[in-house]
């Protein structure tokens, strides 16, 4: 009798064991949203490189296929939406090899294949409000707020940056160097919202309070914000 019981227990433990994931080393990418050299807060006034005053209410961007330069595999389902309104969205955990990586890379935005493959799930679910329905395609990044310089209704500025076709492409390959003296399991990456306004292309709210479609303006703004990231030490 006890033998049979033992057998049952043995089978049960074996089945359970098969489901245990293998522990792996990993690193957390922690995005810090900034405006210039201050942490970004809603309801706070900042000054853009063009001298405009802005209150930033919404700030979101897609991080696709994040990886380290020495990663052997890409993340299987590597699409993340970093959102000012959701602090948990700012952390991405990535597997790491034994050797210390010297670069962190990702696509800022969503690759063109995902833009033409129908309805996606997870971070790419159109439910997240980052998808244009009348001209299929992802909004790669969003920045919205209020500025006294804006001639638009409610003094708003609204930048929805997207476009994946060759001449309108706004997805940006980003590579960030990791300092050799980096320690710990967290990589802090600062994203500076004010870099949307320049230098590079001087984005003046008075002239361009709105960008709502793929095209030259979107490409210019994406050319600005590709420089908004900086690896920092805590």
């Amino acid at each position: 009798m006890p033998k049979a019981l033992l057998l049952l227990i043995l089978i049960a433990t074996l089945t359970l064991q098969a489901q245990q994931p293998v522990a792996k080393r990993s690193m957390v990418i922690a995005f810090q949203l900034y405006a210039g050299d201050q942490p970004l807060q809603p309801g706070t006034c900042y000054t853009t490189p063009q001298g405009d005053s802005v209150y930033i209410e919404r700030f979101r961007f897609y991080v696709s296929s994040p990886r380290f330069n020495n990663s052997t595999t890409r993340q299987a389902n590597g699409y993340y939406l970093v959102d000012m309104a959701d602090s948990s969205s700012r952390y991405i955990t990535l597997p790491i090899n034994t050797a210390a990586p010297s670069q962190f890379r990702f696509l800022l935005g969503v690759d063109s294949l995902r833009n033409v493959s129908g309805v996606q799930t997870g971070a790419l679910d159109p439910l997240n409000g980052m998808f244009w329905t009348w001209n299929s395609g992802y909004i790669m990044a969003k920045l919205e707020g209020i500025s006294p310089q804006s001639p638009a209704a409610g003094q708003r500025f609204t930048y929805h940056i997207g476009g994946f076709r060759s001449t309108q492409n706004t997805a940006q390959q980003i590579s960030l160097n990791i300092p050799a003296n980096h320690r710990g399991d967290t990589l802090w990456v600062r994203a500076d919202a004010l870099r949307w306004f320049g230098p590079g292309f001087p984005l003046r709210i008075q002239e361009n309070p709105v960008c709502h479609s793929p095209g030259a303006l979107a490409v210019h703004i994406a050319g600005n914000y590709r420089h908004m990231f900086l690896v920092v030490q805590p």
């Binding site: 833009n115 033409v116 493959s117 129908g118 309805v119 159109p126 409000g129 329905t133 299929s136 395609g137």
Partner: peptide, 18 residues
């Protein structure tokens, strides 16, 4: 609209805040 599966989203969300 570049995929049939995306089509229903357009009429449903035609208003600004999709």
């Amino acid at each position: 609209i570049n995929h049939l599966d995306l089509q229903p989203l357009a009429p449903i969300t035609a208003e600004h805040e999709m």
